[in-house]
Every structure is written in structure tokens, then in C-alpha cells.
Amino acid sequence: MAKTTEKNQEPVANQQIDTRIAAVRDLIFGENIQQYNSEFEDVYNRIKSLEEASQKSLADSVASIESKLADLESLVDHKFQDLNDDLDKKLADIDDEKADRRKLGKALEKIALMLQE
């Protein structure tokens, strides 16, 4: 039982010493610690405001990039459609030219038949 009483007294003694050390520390460094705490609080506030500004800037940049990508996609779709229309027109012209060759061939056949008669 004597050992149990000694163990209980040790934490109480340590607490008293810790309290005394804290009191001495506050007397010696109290003003400096308050100044440091104030400066740290200012720094934390600046960091927080910079972080919020960075997040806002990042969100604005993402929105801008998404808008530009949508514009680019629209432009590419428009150009693709123009090229597709141009290709269709060229194919139609080629078909017309082939039809003209066929007509020319038939006309030449008729001339050849006339010459044979």
C-alpha cells in the first residue's frame, strides 16, 4: 500500500511542478508569446485568404478552359460539316462529269452508226 500512495503522490507533484513552470514561463515570455500568437494568427489568416483566392482563381480558370473547349468543339464541328458538304458537292460534280462521259460515249456511238450506214 505504501507503493500505491507514492505513485499517487508523484503525479500530484509533477502537476505542481508543471504549474509552476507554466507560471514562470508566462511571467518571462508571456508578452512575447502573445505577440507570436498574434503574428501566427495573422499568417494563418493570410494563408487562408490566399488559399481561397487560389481556389476561386482555379475555378475561374477551369470555367474559362471549359468554355474555350466548347467553342473549339463547336468550331471543329462546323468545319467538319463544311468539309463534309464540300466533299458531297465534289462527289456530285464527279458523278456529273461521269454522266457527261457516258453521254459523250453514246453520242460517239450514234455518230459511228451513222457513218457506217
Rank of each mutant, 00 (worst) to 15 (best):
E41K: 15
S54R: 15
E51Y: 05
A99L: 09
K56D: 13
I17A: 12
T4I: 15
T4K: 12
K56F: 05
K3S: 13
R101N: 11
K79R: 06
E117F: 11
F29M: 06
A107M: 14
L91C: 03
H78S: 13
A23K: 07
D88F: 02
L58Y: 08
V76A: 01
R101W: 10
L50C: 10
D95P: 01
I28F: 11
N84P: 00
S64T: 08
A53R: 14
A2C: 03
D86H: 07
L83Y: 01
N32T: 06
S54Y: 15
E41S: 07
E6H: 11
N37Q: 09
N37Y: 05
D96N: 08
L115K: 15
Q35I: 10
P11E: 10
D100E: 11
A70V: 02
I65S: 05
V24Y: 05
D42S: 10
A92M: 02
M1P: 02
L113V: 10
A99R: 15
A112W: 06
M114I: 05
D88I: 05
E6P: 02
K48D: 15
V62P: 00
T5P: 01
H78T: 07
M1C: 02
I33Y: 07
E6S: 13
K3G: 03
K68Q: 15
V24K: 09
Q116A: 11
A53G: 08
E41M: 13
L75S: 15
N84I: 00
A22H: 10
I94E: 07
A112N: 09
V62W: 04
A92V: 00
F40K: 12
I33M: 07
D60P: 02
V12H: 02
D88K: 07
N14R: 15
N8H: 08
A2P: 04
K110N: 09
E117M: 12
I111L: 04
S54W: 12
N84Q: 06
Q34V: 06
K79Y: 02
Q81N: 02
L69W: 06
K89S: 05
R46K: 15
S49R: 15
T19R: 13
D100I: 12
D100F: 06
A63G: 01
L113M: 05
D82P: 01
M1H: 03
L72T: 10
E52C: 03
D77C: 03
N32W: 13
N8S: 08
E6I: 07
I28S: 04
N32F: 13
Y36R: 09
A107C: 05
Q34F: 12
S54D: 08
E6D: 09
E109Q: 08
E51S: 09
R102M: 10
K106S: 08
A22I: 07
D77V: 04
D96Q: 11
A2T: 05
Y36M: 07
K90F: 00
Y36S: 07
D26Q: 06
L72N: 05
R20N: 08
Q9I: 11
K7A: 13
I94N: 10
L83C: 01
E97Q: 09
Q81W: 01
Q9L: 13
L108Y: 11
N37I: 03
A23H: 10
K68S: 09
A92H: 04
D71H: 00
S61M: 06
L115M: 09
A99H: 14
V76D: 01
D77T: 04
D95W: 00
E51Q: 12
S38C: 05
K89C: 01
Q16F: 12
V62T: 12
Q15P: 03
P11R: 14
